[in-house]
Amino acid sequence: MEHQSPLRDGEERRDCAVPEDARAAQRDGEPGVELLHLAGLVSEDERAGSEDSRQPRKRRAPRDSARPELKDEGIQTRNNKKRKKNRNRSGKRKMVVRPNYFVGIQVSNPEVHRAVRGLQEKIVAAQPELRSTVIPTATLHVTLAVAHLPDPAHVARAAEVMKESLSVNRDLYNNPPVCLMFSGVKTFKNQVLFADIEGGESLLRIAGLAQALEESFEESGLVLPSRKSFQPHLTILKLSKDFGLKRKGILKITPSLYSDDRSMHFGQQVVRSVQLLSMNKPKDANGYYYCSHQEIFDVAGEESGDHSGCCEKPSLGKQPPPGVGGRRHLHSLAAVEGERRPATRAEDVVRMLLLVGAVSIGVAFLLRSFSAAK
């Protein structure tokens, strides 16, 4: 006997008998919505909507393929940039070559040093966090070119290239001498603060020298990691000296720190030589870069050697922690000037625990030996 569920009040029983064509559709494996439609339980609109939902969804096109015209025009899109970043034409990852030497002109005039030092002190007094970005006055220079010289053979080759390149036009820098005038304060994207060099014949001669050196280096097979447009300058502050400033929220050099000194005059520097300098080797006794080679010009006159108001003053750079002199760091039990630092309470406790532990091990060993002898 077929079981039927009871009806509620006012509810009429609906004939749910499935017609033969619906049964045939079920045998043929058609979807369940078709069965309900044939049985009269689903309307035509509901059936159409169900069929649409069963259609396979189209996969979303990649962001780059959605705009093929950008590829045709050679424009870099976001995904394209990610794929091509740090890769060369063969698809292999590029090797990052960093410069370790540079050709520069030493800025040694005490007048320039004192002016730079005065501006640095003013900025650090206004924002002490920038102390670590200060360029020591003893290292002031103007960069002409940078290079990657991996071994002494490449350094010797670079020195020979400098000698040959400067021997051709040496008189151009001897008579009259090149004199660089530093005036005005500018920045590179508020990341590097520098003193600008006034334009004129001297600047043109230095630009020609820089171009001649770069071309000679390339012809000799020496690696020049970067070939940017030549813009000679005298660096005063550089944020990249201290990456920890980003964690402190210092992302740029605030213009208000130097706004009153934009037209500041720093002095002049007579170019007496061109040097091949190492970025990584220890500084010399005067705090200047290690010089691997130097081409000296025939320039008359002597430069003042009084650096009491600049280089001989205490460094403005990042100060060591209290009790630590220079690069020397103190360990917990190190001696300072022949005297032992008094031990702290924690160190006394550690010593006592070590002593008790040693005594306990000794006593346990003796007891074990005594028991074994019995």
Score class of each variant (00 low, 15 high):
288 Y>V: 11
219 E>I: 06
298 D>M: 07
237 L>D: 12
327 R>I: 13
257 L>R: 00
204 L>A: 11
249 G>I: 01
308 S>M: 00
246 K>G: 07
283 K>D: 06
199 G>L: 00
256 S>G: 06
213 L>Y: 09
244 G>R: 05
319 Q>S: 03
232 P>I: 06
278 S>M: 00
266 F>G: 04
231 Q>G: 05
200 G>D: 06
209 L>V: 03
316 L>A: 06
224 L>G: 09
225 P>H: 02
299 V>K: 08
306 D>K: 01
266 F>C: 05
216 S>H: 03
208 G>C: 08
310 C>H: 09
255 P>Q: 13
294 Q>R: 15
238 K>F: 12
324 V>M: 15
304 S>H: 08
289 Y>K: 07
226 S>V: 11
327 R>S: 15
235 T>G: 05
281 K>V: 08
286 N>Q: 09
212 A>I: 02
303 E>S: 07
196 D>I: 00
218 E>Q: 10
220 S>L: 02
261 D>G: 01
243 F>R: 13
244 G>V: 13
233 H>Q: 12
277 L>T: 01
327 R>C: 14
229 S>T: 08
249 G>Y: 07
295 E>D: 13
233 H>I: 05
194 F>K: 05
252 K>T: 04
286 N>T: 11
217 F>I: 11
269 Q>D: 14
241 K>E: 04
274 V>Y: 12
207 A>C: 09
293 H>Q: 06
200 G>N: 04
273 S>G: 09
259 S>W: 06
291 C>E: 02
239 L>Y: 00
281 K>S: 13
296 I>V: 15
207 A>Y: 00
254 T>W: 13
200 G>C: 01
317 G>M: 03
237 L>W: 10
284 D>C: 04
235 T>M: 02
214 E>M: 10
187 T>E: 08
200 G>M: 02
248 K>Q: 15
221 G>H: 04
296 I>H: 08
243 F>G: 12
326 G>S: 12
279 M>D: 07
266 F>T: 11
273 S>W: 03
251 L>V: 07
260 D>N: 13
283 K>A: 13
314 P>W: 01
229 S>K: 12
305 G>D: 03
282 P>K: 04
245 L>M: 02
260 D>E: 13
272 R>D: 03
302 E>L: 06
284 D>P: 10
246 K>S: 12
319 Q>K: 09
221 G>Y: 01
286 N>F: 07
329 H>V: 15
254 T>F: 15
254 T>E: 12
248 K>A: 10
263 S>N: 10
292 S>H: 10
262 R>D: 06
262 R>M: 15
190 N>K: 15
330 L>R: 14
219 E>G: 05
275 Q>I: 04
205 R>L: 08
317 G>E: 11
264 M>K: 15
241 K>L: 12
223 V>Y: 09
231 Q>V: 06
314 P>H: 07
211 Q>R: 09
253 I>C: 06
203 L>Q: 11
308 S>E: 09
251 L>T: 09
223 V>C: 13
314 P>M: 02
306 D>L: 03
268 Q>C: 08
291 C>T: 10
252 K>S: 14
255 P>G: 11
234 L>N: 14
270 V>F: 03
